[in-house]
């Protein structure tokens, strides 16, 4: 199923009974104990809960960065359990965008080079990728700072660059792990509004992990989690 064939009522991603554990130090942490939900294009879904409840782990599984111990993820109707690592990596590049709390930009690259990275990976030529990156940065009011190195930007600017990078390949799914967690309230609002705007405009399903109840209330849906379960 291609992105073009989806309409706003289509289920973009569906999780079924996801269970996952990881090793932290010497102990095994059971992060997810059976999580099921679904998300559609153009909708912003907040995932809320206390630290350690499994929100980020869920995001990494949905973003195909990790494989669940059990359960299944359907992305655009396609089951991911049987997808090879190469297919999952290609899907990350083509269909999924990530925004992390600490932006995670590559400091040796300029803002536009950071944004161009997913485009370059998907085979876009350097010049065109940089032009597209400039365009995106302009839309995010960062046009003048496109050629600045990432570490020379403010926290809010860095997070907007990270959003631009996540949107560079026009993903169907955007996963944001506390994207405003490190920003002041003005910048938080700004970033949240941007995400909402892009979700509507580009028919993107956004899953947003947040501790901020006000932001969660403004989302289309809210999934509260506790101890690895949706409550």
């Amino acid at each position: 199923m291609t992105k073009e064939s989806l309409n706003t009522n289509d289920i973009l991603i569906r999780a079924e009974q996801l269970k996952h554990a990881f090793i932290e130090g010497e102990s095994k942490v059971q992060a997810l104990r059976g999580v099921s939900f679904e998300a559609k294009g153009s909708e912003v879904t907040a995932i809320v809960g206390q630290s350690g409840c499994g929100k980020s782990t869920l995001l990494y599984l949905l973003g195909l960065l990790d494989r669940p111990e059990s359960g299944e993820i359907h992305l655009k109707g396609r089951p991911m359990a049987k997808a090879t690592d190469e297919e999952r990596t290609a899907l990350r590049n083509e269909s999924i965008g990530f925004v992390f709390q600490f932006h995670f930009l590559i400091k040796e690259l300029t803002a536009r080079e950071n944004v161009a990275l997913p485009l370059r990976k998907s085979g876009v030529g350097e010049r065109q990728a940089l032009e597209q990156a400039d365009e995106l940065l302009n839309r995010l009011d960062l046009g003048e700072k496109a050629k600045r190195y990432a570490n020379k930007l403010s926290g809010g600017e860095q997070q907007r660059v990270a959003i631009a990078r996540a949107l560079a390949n026009s993903p169907s799914l955007l996963l944001a792990d506390e994207p405003t967690g490190n920003l002041d309230s003005a910048n938080s609002d700004n970033v949240f509004e941007l995400l909402m705007k892009f979700a509507r405009e580009k028919d993107i399903a956004i899953l947003l992990v947040t501790h901020n109840p006000e932001l969660a209330e403004r989302c289309d849906h809210c999934i509260p989690m506790r101890d690895g379960l949706i409550v």
Binding site: T89, A90, F98, F104, I106, K121, N169
Partner: peptide
């Protein structure tokens, strides 16, 4: 961390 980011955006 940079490697992890590259992997997350689709680098093999």
């Amino acid at each position: 961390r940079d490697i992890a980011i590259l992997r997350s955006i689709g680098f093999t």
